[in-house]
Design a protein around this nucleic acid. Structure first.
Lengths: 256, 256
DNA sequence: GCGAAGATTCCTCTATGCGGAACACAGAGA
DNA sequence: TCTCTGTGTTCCGCATAGAGGAATCTTCGC
């Protein structure tokens, strides 16, 4: 495995999933192209493709020998799109916010001490924050996570990190005192900010989304190059995120 | 790997794909359930699920700890469903034929000497032929494949099987003489039949679908228990398949 | 608080997935 | 028609990636 692409979990499985995702941009895939893009041998690429064919997720065109998406893949998608869910509710808001604010926007959900990036829409500028969909990070290092932690009391926050905090950059809060100061500011402002907490040069603003019982269940976050997210802009973005969160919550409420 | 389920290609990849397909019937998956259904250990199931999460194809609900489909999976599906293709054209015909004839219907494409089952709709009766989507079989052993071979000349057919034919059941044609007799009948009738050629007790009828240049590019086939596909019924089904094939061809022609 | 069930982590082991090479196939050009 | 090149497929040997088991952690119900 000489591939330098980030691998999450099982490498063989990850490569097969990447082939599926290639179908979004490339309707027809060739063994040689797949091998090159994955950084694997042709025989490996062939094995992966034939495995996908075995479950009807891909099919080979007998004339051109290229591989195209199989019906089972589309059927799966149709079955899923019939189920409204939180992610489905969030999506149009992500799109609208990205268009209005001109910055990359992401949706995050909480998993114990971490947040997971579950969706996002990328800004269309050349210099922009990229998407982290699928990534998991400590909540205290991410704006959406801070918005969540601000709704817990001190003991609850400490219980999430029994071994203390680990700084990702020099700006990440490194102990509970620093984190509590930040969370107090989040509570006062209504939105959270993250100034180079996960990556140098990157700023972010986040606001929590609540369920009908008032518990934070997700967060909306805008991330951008630091020079584009000064104090005034952050306040403007924060207000937009809070407004969007309230809209999502209203839609969630109407589903109960 | 103690799993007895058919494995196509890489076992680890196949298991991950099966998890994706589980989302069609089961909106939320638990590690323990996935492990049981795949026949693997819980740690393996957990590894597979976290790999899916790494590419945004699944996401874990932080509160319930169950895994649900991720946005990337649905986005992929939506991107694919925006592309009309042969499979897309065939689908409504498969659904209509299945409803009208009351039997399992499948779409097959050709790959050299074989056919691949690329789509299908299963009859709603208790006793019925199952779907073979994803499976590859010798063309001479399958009704859709015979419909295709009937449009080749003798030399072309022989060139596809340089090592001769292999009987799958006692009814599969075992040499070129027997096969040519069958293909002559296909040409006379306009549709192909397969009487227990791949499985004892199973009969099938197939007809080829052509592109604008008149080349067979796919086949529609009805398969059913032998007692339900006597000579008269086969003729009726054959006529319906030919009619549907002509409709698909008209729609294909309108796309040129 | 306790026990049971389920999820996660980590270690060891081996068989599965990998790459390389040979072969098969297809197309283009002479 | 033949040759060459590019691409897809098959097969073999190898070692490491993936699997299972056990310990640990987490959650839930009583």
């Amino acid at each position: 495995m000489r591939n330098t692409e980030r691998v999450q979990g099982l490498a063989s499985v990850d490569n097969a999933l990447r082939i599926l995702l290639m179908f979004q941009q490339t309707p027809e895939l060739r063994v040689t192209d797949v091998a090159r893009r994955l950084g694997v041998s042709r025989s490996t690429a062939h094995r992966l493709l034939t495995t996908l064919c075995g479950r009807g997720l891909a099919v080979q065109d007998g004339r051109t020998r290229a591989y195209v998406p199989g019906r089972t893949l589309v059927d799966l998608a149709h079955a899923l799109s019939r189920r409204p869910d939180l992610l489905g509710l969030l999506r149009p808001h992500l799109v609208e916010l990205c268009a209005r604010l001109g910055e990359t926007i992401s949706a995050q959900v909480f998993q114990g001490p971490d947040v997971v990036f579950v969706d996002g829409v990328e800004a269309e500028r050349v210099l922009k924050a990229g998407l982290r969909t699928g990534a998991k990070m400590p909540a205290y290092a991410v704006s959406g996570g801070k918005a969540y932690l601000a709704e817990l009391n001190t003991a609850e926050v400490r219980a999430l990190y029994p071994r203390g905090l680990v700084k990702l950059t020099s700006h990440t809060p490194g102990d509970f005192e620093a984190l509590e100061q930040e969370l107090a500011q989040v509570r006062a402002r209504g939105y959270a900010v993250n100034l180079e907490g996960t990556e140098t040069g990157l700023h972010a603003v986040g606001a929590a989304v609540h369920d009908h019982a008032g518990r934070a269940i997700a967060a909306l976050a805008v991330s951008a190059p630091a020079q584009r997210l000064g104090p005034e802009r952050r306040h403007e973005v924060g207000a937009s995120l809070i407004q969007a969160a309230r809209s999502v919550e209203a839609e969630l409420g109407s589903l109960q």
